[in-house]
Design a protein around this nucleic acid. Structure first.
Length: 260
DNA sequence: ATGTCGCTCTACGAGCGA
C-alpha cells in the first residue's frame, strides 16, 4: 500500500500538476494540504473519474485538507479534537484496509506560526498540544496509525540547507522542535529518518529568491508512524523531481509503502 | 536580492498568507 502526502498550495492552481503526479506515482492513498477551497469547490468528479474516493475538509481561501484513496475510506472524521472554536480546516482522518491490516490515516496541515513571537505562534503551539493529545490516543488504540502532512517543523539543523537563516523562524524555534520531539517521544517513528540519514533532503523550496535553483530547501513534510505501522513500512521517499515540473507547488510529495 | 505564488474582493491592483 502506497500512501503519500502532498501540500499542493491550491487545488485550482494545481489540478494539472497533481493529476500528472498521480498518474506517475500511482499512490493508493494521498493526503493533501492547502487545498484552499471549500468542499463544494473541490473538483471531486475529476479525481473520482481517475478511480479515487474523495473526502475533503475545506474552507474558503486558506488551509483545507483532503484524502484521495483508491481503497474505500471508512470512519472519516474532520477537525483536530480539543478546541470546538477552532474553525481552521487542518485535520482529517480515515481508515483504509489492506490485504491483512487496517490503517488509520491522519492528514494534517500544522499552522505556520509566523510571525514569531505573536498570536499566530501561540496558535501553533496550542495546536501542537492538541496534536500530542490525539497522538496519545492513536498510540493507545490497537489499530496501526500514521499522521502525515505539512508539519511546518524543521526537526534538526540538517533538515535545512541554511539552518542559520531559520533560527528565529516559527518552523525552527526551540519550542517548536521540542513540541515535535514530545510527540516523537510517545513512540512514533519519523518514517524518512528511519531509513535515510544525513543532510540535503528537503520537501519545500520557497518560490522566492531562486530557492529551488540554489537548492535552498527545508524538510517540513513528515510521516509519523505508530510502532505497529512502522513495522509494516517497506520504503519512504521524497519525490524531489516534482518541484522541477510545470507550475509546481512549493512543496513536493512524500510517500511511504506499507506491507498492510 | 527587497527576488514569488495563490487567493479574494467588486478588482482591472491591493492585501493577506505562506
Amino acid at each position: 500500500m502506497k500512501i503519500a502526502s502532498f501540500n499542493i498550495n491550491g487545488i485550482k492552481a494545481r489540478i494539472e500538476a497533481l493529476t500528472r503526479w498521480l498518474n506517475e506515482a500511482q499512490p493508493d492513498v494521498v493526503v493533501l494540504q492547502e487545498i484552499k477551497s471549500v468542499d463544494e469547490g473541490f473538483p471531486r468528479d475529476h479525481f473520482e473519474d481517475m478511480g479515487y474516493n474523495v473526502e475533503t475538509h475545506g474552507q474558503k481561501s486558506f488551509n483545507g485538507v483532503a484524502i484521495l484513496s483508491k481503497l474505500p475510506l471508512e470512519d472519516v472524521t474532520r477537525g483536530l479534537p480539543g478546541d470546538d472554536s477552532d474553525e481552521q480546516a487542518r485535520w482529517i482522518e480515515a481508515t483504509v484496509t489492506g490485504n491483512h491490516s487496517s490503517v488509520r490515516v491522519c492528514g494534517l496541515y500544522l499552522p505556520n506560526g509566523n510571525p514569531c513571537p505573536g498570536p499566530k505562534y501561540d496558535y501553533k503551539l496550542a495546536w501542537m498540544a492538541r496534536l500530542e493529545a490525539r497522538a496519545r490516543q492513536l498510540m493507545a488504540d490497537e489499530m496501526p496509525a500514521l499522521m502525515a502532512g505539512d508539519y511546518n517543523v524543521i526537526p534538526q539543523a540538517e533538515d535545512a540547507a541554511k539552518p542559520e537563516s531559520w533560527t528565529e523562524d516559527a518552523l525552527f524555534r526551540p519550542e517548536t522542535r521540542a513540541a515535535f520531539r514530545r510527540i516523537l517521544n510517545l513512540g512514533f517513528t519519523e518514517a524518512f529518518r528511519a531509513r535515510t540519514q544525513g543532510p540535503g533532503h528537503y520537501s519545500f523550496w520557497d518560490y522566492q529568491a531562486g530557492a529551488w535553483q540554489r537548492n535552498n530547501g527545508i524538510r517540513i513534510d513528515h510521516f509519523l508512524l505508530t510502532p505497529a505501522c512502522a513495522d509494516m513500512m517497506t520504503d519512504c521517499q521524497i519525490d524531489k523531481d516534482t518541484r522541477a515540473g510545470d507550475k509546481p507547488s512549493d512543496h513536493v510529495p512524500i510517500w511511504i509503502t506499507l506491507d498492510a
